[in-house]
Lab assay of single mutants.
Amino acid sequence: MLDDRARMEAAKKEKVEQILAEFQLQEEDLKKVMRRMQKEMDRGLRLETHEEASVKMLPTYVRSTPEGSEVGDFLSLDLGGTNFRVMLVKVGEGEEGQWSVKTKHQMYSIPEDAMTGTAEMLFDYISECISDFLDKHQMKHKKLPLGFTFSFPVRHEDIDKGILLNWTKGFKASGAEGNNVVGLLRDAIKRRGDFEMDVVAMVNDTVATMISCYYEDHQCEVGMIVGTGCNACYMEEMQNVELVEGDEGRMCVNTEWGAFGDSGELDEFLLEYDRLVDESSANPGQQLYEKLIGGKYMGELVRLVLLRLVDENLLFHGEASEQLRTRGAFETRFVSQVESDTGDRKQIYNILSTLGLRPSTTDCDIVRRACESVSTRAAHMCSAGLAGVINRMRESRSEDVMRITVGVDGSVYKLHPSFKERFHASVRRLTPSCEITFIESEEGSGRGAALVSAVACKKACMLGQ
């Protein structure tokens, strides 16, 4: 009897593995994704193909990295998701002549009506938060230079001027797309009239992360975010950046690689679950690469896999709870928690219980395998993109072996128990001629924006502006 049951459990697990095998990517698959990513990057950089390229390769006008001589107080704003952060950054000489960066910050959550109302409502709310922060720190009387981390696709015309191309991540505030974001912020500050600010720089969160990590390690020339969304930036040779005049030196390019796949480059790798996630998203047909990796989508992918296993009578005796059938019910943090389970399955059992399920031991094991399959594919897909960037940098610099540091931020990278190990191992397999160091950014977005502002202020002083 026991043997029969054991055989049935083994057969069930084997069927589960057959279904989950769809998520496995072979090294040849990853090399294919990497080569296609490089081709799209090239198209994004070139003037004649930029418009139709899915990977936009947006110039950021960040050319210099901090040298350690900029000092002063800077205000930093960070808008990239449902939370908005205001930070005071003091850049100065530390002990023994070292450079020191001290920060104080406060988080504000953005109400739904500000995210989806008008641009005026959104930026009025942001300036209200700045006003509140300055009151708390008794700094209303000071006109501070301000660095703005704005983590949406922007076409820069200068370091302090950028046109919002399109909202992502659930934002829909009308009247912002096609307009200068810094102008919208300046107008809102003017409307309030109770404080003055000098907006000197606007950067993407990947750029802010790279600059913040450069402060720790001067070989950091790539910034990457794996959180709600997924994106990367890197220092490109100016001669390859056709959208900006000049051939000397390097400029940081914001790849906006989340949109890779929007022209069909990933079609052969998309599964039924991916198509369902895409169809029910706020932007169907867009940001397809990001939807395979980002935390906004990972939990939902797992939920759809679990429903398939229920329908195949391989999980929960073929019956799903009402909660499990509800879109968004299986949160991405559950994926991390399930994979963090120590082996007694308590954590998995508790999560499934909150979803109205009474799982068996085998159910718990199957749910864990589903989570591992989805998150491992995410790590491997992400590795193909980064390997594409790094191999490109090595080739354009004609280096036999390139040493490089990548600064990384984002909740999936930082909080998932195995993502970074799987990701690092896969990147290294795909970049055999590179020695890569990964560092995690601390308060990256805010500190990085302030350091970019410090560079901009120093330049302005040198130019006598």
Rank of each mutant, 00 (worst) to 15 (best):
L2F: 10
R5E: 14
R5T: 13
R5C: 11
R5L: 15
A6E: 15
A11D: 07
A11N: 12
K12S: 15
K13S: 15
E14Y: 09
E14R: 14
Q18V: 10
A21F: 10
A21H: 09
K31M: 08
K31G: 08
K32F: 06
K32Q: 04
K32H: 12
V33Q: 09
V33F: 05
R36I: 02
M37D: 00
M37Q: 01
K39E: 11
K39I: 14
R43L: 15
L45R: 08
R46C: 12
T49V: 06
H50F: 06
E51V: 13
S54T: 15
S54Y: 05
S54K: 13
V55F: 08
K56C: 14
L58S: 13
L58V: 05
T60K: 00
T60L: 01
V62C: 08
V62G: 00
T65G: 06
T65W: 06
P66C: 11
E67M: 02
G68N: 07
V71W: 01
V71L: 11
G72E: 00
S76A: 04
L77M: 04
L77C: 08
D78R: 07
L79I: 05
L79C: 06
L79Y: 03
T82I: 04
F84L: 11
F84Q: 03
R85S: 10
R85D: 11
V86S: 08
V86A: 07
M87Q: 01
M87Y: 04
M87T: 07
M87N: 10
V91E: 02
V91H: 04
E93W: 10
E95D: 08
G97H: 11
Q98D: 06
S100Y: 07
V101N: 02
K104N: 13
H105L: 06
H105N: 09
S109C: 04
I110P: 02
P111Y: 08
P111Q: 10
A114S: 13
A114V: 11
T116I: 07
G117Y: 08
M121N: 10
M121G: 10
M121W: 12
L122N: 08
F123M: 05
Y125C: 09
Y125N: 02
I126H: 03
I126G: 02
S127C: 05
E128I: 11
I130W: 06
I130Q: 10
S131A: 10
L134D: 04
K136L: 07
M139Y: 09
K140H: 08
H141G: 04
K143H: 04
K143A: 05
F148G: 11
T149G: 13
T149A: 08
T149I: 05
V154T: 10
D158M: 15
I159G: 13
G162H: 10
G162V: 11
L164C: 11
N166P: 15
W167S: 14
K169P: 09
K172F: 06
A173Q: 03
N180M: 15
V181F: 09
V181P: 06
V181C: 04
G183E: 04
R186G: 04
D187M: 09
A188T: 02
I189V: 04
K190C: 14
R192C: 02
R192G: 01
G193W: 09
F195R: 03
F195W: 08
E196F: 08
E196C: 02
E196D: 03
M197L: 08
D198F: 00
A201G: 06
M202C: 03
T206I: 02
V207T: 09
T209S: 03
M210R: 00
M210I: 01
M210C: 00
D217G: 02
H218L: 01
C220E: 00
G223W: 01
N231G: 06
A232D: 00
A232C: 05
C233Y: 00
Y234A: 00
E236F: 00
N240A: 02
N240D: 02
N240W: 01
V241E: 01
E242V: 00
E245Y: 05
E245S: 04
E245I: 02
E245A: 01
D247C: 04
E248A: 07
E248H: 02
M251W: 02
V253P: 00
V253I: 08
V253G: 00
N254V: 06
N254E: 04
T255Q: 11
A259Q: 12
F260V: 05
G261Y: 10
D262M: 12
S263Y: 09
E265W: 03
L266F: 09
D267Y: 06
D267F: 01
F269L: 02
F269E: 06
L270K: 03
Y273G: 06
R275C: 10
V277R: 06
D278G: 06
S280M: 11
N283E: 09
P284H: 06
P284M: 14
E290I: 06
K291R: 12
K291V: 10
K291S: 11
I293H: 14
G294F: 09
G295E: 15
K296Y: 11
Y297I: 14
Y297W: 13
Y297V: 15
G299I: 03
E300D: 02
L301T: 03
L304V: 07
V305K: 00
V305R: 00
L307W: 02
L314G: 06
L314W: 11
L315M: 13
L315T: 06
F316K: 02
F316M: 13
F316N: 14
E319T: 07
A320L: 14
A320Y: 06
S321Q: 11
S321C: 11
E322C: 15
E322R: 08
Q323S: 12
L324N: 02
R325A: 10
T326N: 14
G328R: 11
F330C: 11
T332N: 10
R333V: 05
R333W: 05
R333L: 15
V335I: 09
V335Q: 07
S336F: 14
V338D: 00
E339H: 04
E339A: 03
S340Q: 03
D341N: 02
T342A: 03
T342H: 04
R345M: 03
K346V: 13
Q347F: 08
I348T: 07
Y349P: 03
I351K: 04
S353K: 07
L355Q: 05
L357Y: 08
L357A: 01
L357V: 05
S360V: 08
T361V: 10
T361M: 05
T361F: 02
T362N: 09
T362I: 04
D363E: 04
D363L: 01
C364G: 02
D365F: 08
R368N: 06
R369L: 07
A370R: 00
E372W: 02
E372S: 11
E372D: 02
S373V: 11
S375D: 05
A378L: 05
A379E: 02
A379G: 07
M381C: 07
C382H: 09
C382T: 11
A384H: 01
A387F: 01
I390S: 09
N391S: 07
R392I: 08
R392W: 08
M393Y: 15
R394A: 14
E395W: 10
R397A: 14
S398M: 04
V401I: 04
M402R: 07
R403Q: 08
R403S: 11
R403K: 10
R403H: 04
I404W: 07
I404V: 06
T405G: 03
T405C: 03
G407I: 02
V408T: 12
D409I: 05
Y413T: 04
K414T: 12
K414Y: 15
L415H: 11
H416D: 09
S418R: 12
F419K: 02
F419H: 03
K420S: 09
K420C: 11
K420P: 11
R422Q: 15
S426H: 04
S426I: 03
V427F: 08
V427N: 07
R428E: 12
R429D: 14
R429W: 15
L430S: 07
L430Q: 09
S433H: 12
S433L: 12
E435Q: 15
I436G: 02
I436K: 01
F438S: 02
I439D: 01
S441I: 02
E442C: 13
G444R: 10
G446I: 12
A450P: 12
A450N: 11
L451T: 12
V452Y: 05
S453H: 15
A454R: 12
V455R: 09
A456K: 03
A456I: 10
M462Q: 08
M462E: 15
M462N: 08
L463A: 11
L463T: 10
L463M: 14
G464P: 14
